[in-house]
Design a protein around this nucleic acid. Sequence first.
DNA 1: CTAGTGCACTGGTCCGACCAGTAGGCTACG
DNA 2: CGTAGCCTACTGGTCGGACCAGTGCACTAG
Lengths: 250, 250
Amino acid sequence: MGGPRFEPVRTVRAYERIVEQIEEAVESGSLHPGERLPSERELMAQFAVSRSTVREALRVLQARGLVRSRPGDPNGAEVLPFTPAALHKSMTTLARVDELSLGELVQFRMVLDASANLLAARLRTDEQLDEMDAAIGRMRAAVAVGYDEFSAADVAFHDAVARASRNKLIEICTDVVRSIVLGLISEKIAGAPDRQALMWRSIRHHEEVLAAVRAGDGPLAARLSRQTMYDYYVGYVPAGERPALRALLE
Amino acid sequence: MGGPRFEPVRTVRAYERIVEQIEEAVESGSLHPGERLPSERELMAQFAVSRSTVREALRVLQARGLVRSRPGDPNGAEVLPFTPAALHKSMTTLARVDELSLGELVQFRMVLDASANLLAARLRTDEQLDEMDAAIGRMRAAVAVGYDEFSAADVAFHDAVARASRNKLIEICTDVVRSIVLGLISEKIAGAPDRQALMWRSIRHHEEVLAAVRAGDGPLAARLSRQTMYDYYVGYVPAGERPALRALLE
DNA sequence: CTAGTGCACTGGTCCGACCAGTAGGCTACG
DNA sequence: CGTAGCCTACTGGTCGGACCAGTGCACTAG
């Protein structure tokens, strides 16, 4: 050991330096949402680079959800308020590209939804209870209408629960994983011959969950929600993956 | 109502169309990690656009962690195996601007870690039990060495548990959220005057969790792991957010 | 005072060029 | 014949200039 420590040199592209600088300015708060960046032609003067380089940097910042550019805007790119959109996007990519099995996805939904219900039972407001109640009403009315409307109402219920948990990560992950699961099997559900019976059973289960949330019984709400989701999806999960799902049912 | 329904026209930038096409090819699996995209000059011919446009598209794809370009590479951009780097990046950004609170992050870790333990208690192999045991051994040896080594051993334990859960989503999210939490407060922990006492208590807690996992008692392992994490981090969470954490402790 | 028009500026796209890297084939030497 | 080293044909990174279609604002004509 000993001797001079040489660090490997990392060639940094010009546009990356620009990204770093603007990103730092935004995240440190010296550039607030709603403010405008200088125009591309002015940025290329400030950074002493060509416009192509400035634009590549702006594309990266835009992909990260930090800024937005509109053609014709007399001002420069707009600094956006922080939204979890980029997080949502990368989470979606992860779930799509990483060859996740339906079992894993459903299992993750069970975990998230149960936690959301557990928290919602303690933290929900009366307005959020009303939202959940209204969503179940929509589900009931939708049985005769069709699966799409039923599914939308079901989503509304789970969204209300997720919001009531007051944890944005739970909210986002719930949304992402749900949309992927639905994308994989919604047409199968919609075409099931006994789908009306499934819908009614699902409604009854949701009512039980809501009752537990209303009563403030978090563990019960969590257990019921896991069971609800298991019953609803287990038929579409390969038999080999079902034991892993049942492991969540205690 | 009635009459022809006109959809609002959405001007789509050329580079966005390119991003969509390549993204779709990667996520759908028709382009596998390790494969190469055509060179920029060839892409500009295939998409019938200029090289600038191709490059802006590639910058976006690179920001999303899907491809990587190296200058001088005789082949085109390389399709990358998925890494949670983009996920990590966007979550870090949100955490930096206080869009995600420490309380939410710790809460999410409690949810994930408890679920991982619950599943690991049922699904773990003997080799994985050995890994967890070895990690605790490292933790014990690290108390005298320093916090960094202790933390690394702690990470190894939780990683082993996450792997034993056999759910990649839990594994990845655990990893990302943990590193962000540690990035926020590791220096505070490292500088705590009573850190040695904290480490010993943490080791004892981990041993209890491992015993429950070994015994196959999932619910106990889950409860203990939540308590362990709560005890370890609660001191760094603002008092106003603590009730939300305690809501997970039943 | 208002309605309308034009201008100045924006971002989106294209083109052509040059540079610095890399890899692999080719050559010249041992 | 084998190998070390050069040379070339690519690659991506950057530059500068150009044109177009939008947008907002100031100015003008009613």
